[in-house]
Amino acid sequence: MPREAEPSLNERQFILQALQENLRLDGREFDQYRPLELTFGDQYGVADVTLGKTRVLAKASAEVTVPYVDRPLDGIFNIATELSPMASPAFEVGRPTETEVLLSRLLEKTVRRSGALDTESLCLVAGQKVWSVRVDVHVLSHDGNLIDAACLAVVAALRHFRKPDTSMESGILTVYTPAEREPVALSWLHSPFCVTWSYFGDEGEIALLDATWREEQVRVGSCTISLNRHGEICQIAKLGGTPVEAVTLLQCTNTALTKVKEFSSFLDKKLAEDIKRRDKGGLMAELSAENDR
């Protein structure tokens, strides 16, 4: 597969010089995201996130399987991120690139290990039957900042997702089809989001939010902070690159918190809009067989 074209020396210097003069190529502020859009599909659990020219589609699905032997009480939760040549011809099928490995690890740490989804609630029969929830992340168009867009898409897809309702009666497990019973939402504990900072300059003194692909190619380092709207940090990843001052990092974390609060309210708003759209005759509350927690 062909390699991704690198920016020329002129282009590189132009971007850096502009940044020194407090200007970005697309005229944004340093801590400003590109226009963010989120649409849900007709099916449950499909979220399409557009961040400028970056576009990520996440689809959640669930099926009943046998749990892992060492964790008989926990359901299975997987996030699959396979970058296809759709995003860029430099990605090859079946051969993960560094971007792909980092993306899947970061999503894993942010969403799975922060306990956003209560896996114990996915257990149906201890040691025999559990739900296996899977999120497939499809990158349709890659123009930088995949991590933030993918994380938002995954969280949105999972919160939008409804799994089939089940019941246990005298040892017999019944999984109801959507026609029999309205599917139920997952037991969701908190919504973490990623905010990625890119650093430029000799000592990483310039920090940008939501770098485009061009800017990502020129940056000297990056730092991804995952946190929820309560300010609870799930992980901070700064993988190599130029060292950055601790004070700068602290400031970055503070700004990240305000951005995460924005994401959180944005997602809440979109989810509420979608529920309203689906709830045409106002019968959703009656259809639901779910108990209040």
Binding site: G41, D42, Q43, V46, L57, K59, S84, P85, M86, P89, H138, L140, P164, V175, T177, P178, A179
Partner: peptide, 16 residues
């Protein structure tokens, strides 16, 4: 190179 990404398939409410 032609990449085809299936985004949605018709869902049947009567079967899982």
């Amino acid at each position: 190179q032609i990449v085809l990404q299936v985004e949605a398939t018709p869902d049947n409410d009567y079967v899982n």
